Computed example of a mutant assay.
Amino acid sequence: MNILTQATDNQLVQSFQEGNNNALEILVNRHKDKIFTSINILVKDKYLAEDLFQDVFIKIIDTLRNNRYNEEGKFLPWAMRIAHNLCVDHFRKVKRTPTITTSDDRDIFEVINVMEDGADKAIIKNQSHDRIRKILDMLPDEQREVIVLRHYADLSFKEIAQMTNCSINTALGRMRYGLLNMRKIMAEKQIAL
Rank of each mutant, 00 (worst) to 15 (best):
D51Q: 04
F53D: 08
D55P: 10
F57P: 09
I58E: 09
K59H: 07
D62R: 10
T63I: 10
T63M: 05
R65E: 06
N66F: 07
N66R: 15
R68T: 05
Y69P: 02
N70A: 13
N70W: 03
E72F: 00
E72A: 02
G73I: 11
K74F: 01
F75E: 12
P77W: 14
P77T: 09
W78P: 04
W78S: 02
A79K: 14
M80D: 08
M80A: 14
R81D: 04
I82H: 03
I82D: 08
A83S: 08
H84Y: 15
N85L: 03
N85K: 09
D89R: 14
D89H: 14
H90E: 15
R92K: 15
K93V: 14
V94K: 15
R96G: 08
T97M: 06
T97I: 05
P98A: 06
I100Y: 06
I100T: 09
T101I: 10
T101N: 04
D105L: 06
I108A: 02
F109K: 12
F109V: 10
F109A: 10
E110C: 05
V111T: 13
M115L: 06
E116N: 08
E116K: 10
G118I: 10
A119R: 03
D120T: 12
D120N: 09
A122T: 06
I123A: 12
Q127P: 14
Q127K: 05
Q127F: 12
S128L: 08
R131K: 14
R131A: 10
I132E: 12
K134R: 11
I135N: 01
L136S: 08
D137L: 14
D137Y: 15
L139D: 03
L139H: 04
D141V: 11
D141P: 00
D141R: 10
Q143D: 04
Q143E: 11
Q143L: 00
Q143Y: 01
E145V: 03
E145L: 11
V146H: 02
I147Q: 03
I147G: 02
I147C: 04
I147L: 09
V148P: 02
V148H: 03
